[in-house]
């Protein structure tokens, strides 16, 4: 019998109380995020080794990336601004969900999705610019620069591509949350999904916080 009868029906039978259930959900997401840290971490170590070996080519590659700007600020910096802001809207969504403010929750979920889509839009413009400038590794890669600059772009596309895939998955999860909110399935008692998916979104932001200096600010 649960300690708090008011939570009857909200707590799955394997848990003592709602706190333990919440803790289990949070830990489950953190266990997944730990595997993700090492997933992206492997790429970052590969990046570090090649940067150590070919640091001048790495600088050259980063300078090429830095040429694609809006208002003289690189696309990577704009994307960092977009993602940090989306993390704030996620915090506000969790807060709204906890206090049963459904209209605010829906607005904040949609704001997060708009910011996520803006990130992918800027990324798309950047990739198309890379295509025009012959910076996509392969037979059409620019003959102006060395093979090691090409290696930098292999790392760039692997890291940002994997990150963009996570963004697309995140957008899918937030669409689901928005639908659940519209169906009034998210209540102060049942808002764990918003928190857990929020953790995932913050993690994707966290990865970008490291990719941004590694790819765009190398000198």
């Amino acid at each position: 019998m649960p300690d708090h009868p008011e939570h009857l029906g909200l707590v799955a039978h394997q848990f003592d109380d709602i706190e333990q259930q919440r803790e289990a959900a949070t830990l489950g997401m953190w266990a997944f995020l730990a595997t993700e840290v090492l997933f992206f971490g492997g790429l970052i170590v590969a990046y570090a080794v090649y940067r150590h070996e070919y640091f001048l080519s790495w600088r050259k590659g980063s300078e090429e990336l830095d040429k694609f700007t809006f208002l003289n600020i690189s696309a990577g910096a704009w994307n960092t601004l977009v993602l940090l802001t989306s993390s704030l809207t996620v915090v506000l969504s969790v807060h709204a969900a906890k206090h049963g403010k459904n209209a605010l929750l829906l607005r904040m979920l949609l704001a997060t999705m708009v910011l996520g889509a803006a990130f992918l839009g800027i990324k798309f413009l950047e990739y198309s610019n890379d295509y025009r400038e012959h910076l996509i590794p392969g037979p059409n890669f620019s003959p102006e620069v060395s093979n090691h600059v090409q290696l930098f772009f292999v790392m760039y596309f692997a890291m940002t591509g994997l990150h963009a895939l996570h963004m697309v998955i995140g957008l899918g999860l937030f669409t689901w949350l928005a639908v659940q909110t519209l169906r009034r399935k998210i209540t102060p008692d049942r808002h764990q999904a918003v928190e857990t998916i929020g953790l995932y979104w913050h993690f994707v932001d966290l990865v970008w916080i490291f990719l941004f200096p590694l790819l765009y600010l190398v000198r």
Binding site: E23, W30, A31, L33, V37, I44, A48
Partner: peptide, 22 residues
Amino acid sequence: RLTWVFASTAFFFLALLLAFTV
């Protein structure tokens, strides 16, 4: 504290991987 352990474990192993490779 258990969440702290989960969150720091991954970064600990990443630090090992990075430090010894570099």
